[in-house]
């Protein structure tokens, strides 16, 4: 579905993404994790066309989409959400979702119906007429998801849709994400909430300093020495693994 080869993005002297490669097979849920400032969001933005890469290639469904603008990439079936939610504040929830749905239809009735149906799937049915600005953080995250879904993507890039939510809300979103995948949408997600990563993802890529430092199933990643050091600092792995050996 998605192949990223040696993608590099520099901002002036700073190399935010440094030759990162990853692969997302059709129908999978793949997670991208990494410490703060690792370059996850930049990698996402570069894949989705918001930044022009300085090197590397992005293949989506076998076609080279490197450097295409975001609207063209979205039209081809890859859509991203924003970590800092970007609602159309003065539009209603329904109108927000319709903006996404208009991509695939020019009939108002069909668009409205589609948006209403998606609102139901993400649990926003009772807020359709509210202004987006009236939503809570959790509501905004659901709205991000709904708008993206309304564009009928084949691949969904979710940037921290669970950050800032309480455990109940997280459980709710996890269910929604599962249902989206069951509906045939492939998912690549950035997430800090490890509970969610562990329960959702089949495959995890770990990004640190713009490089992919580990890749594997979630259980293997959780005990990976390099990953622990990236998160907790040099020497942390020894102490942690030493502790478990003593216990």
């Amino acid at each position: 579905m998605l192949e990223v080869h040696d993608l590099t993005k520099r901002f002036g002297g700073l190399t935010a993404v440094d030759g990162a490669s990853l692969e997302v097979p059709q129908g999978a849920i793949v997670a991208l994790i990494g410490p703060n400032g690792a370059g996850k969001t930049t990698l996402f933005a570069t894949i989705a066309g918001f930044h022009k890469p300085d090197g590397g290639r992005v293949l989506f469904r076998g076609e080279d989409i490197t450097g295409l603008p975001p609207d063209r990439i979205c039209a081809r079936g890859m859509v991203r959400t924003f970590q800092n939610t970007q609602p159309f504040a003065k539009l209603s929830v329904l109108e927000n979702i319709m903006v996404g749905a208009w991509l695939r239809t020019d009939d108002r009735h069909a668009c409205q119906q589609r948006a209403t149906e998606i609102a139901r799937r993400v649990g926003l049915s009772d807020r359709l007429d509210d202004m987006a600005s009236e939503l809570t953080v959790a509501g905004c995250k659901r709205l991000e998801l709904a708008r993206a879904l309304a564009t009928e993507p084949r691949l969904l890039l979710l940037d921290e849709v669970m950050a800032g939510l309480n455990p109940t809300e997280i459980a709710g979103i996890v269910d929604v994400v599962r249902a989206i995948r069951a509906g045939g949408v492939t998912i690549l997600l950035i997430e800090h909430v490890m509970q969610a990563v562990m329960s959702l993802a089949e495959d995890v890529f770990v990004l640190n300093d713009g490089r992919i430092i580990a890749h594997g199933p979630p259980a293997a990643i959780a005990s990976d020495r390099g990953v622990m050091e990236a998160y907790l600092g040099r020497g942390a792995a020894e102490r942690l693994l030493g502790d478990t050996a003593h216990a």
Binding site: A48, V79, R80, T81, Q86, P87, A150
Partner: peptide, 12 residues
């Protein structure tokens, strides 16, 4: 309302 979000949703 939000040009970046508009672009992400497929609007040229």
């Amino acid at each position: 309302e939000n040009e970046d979000a508009a672009r992400a949703l497929g609007i040229n």
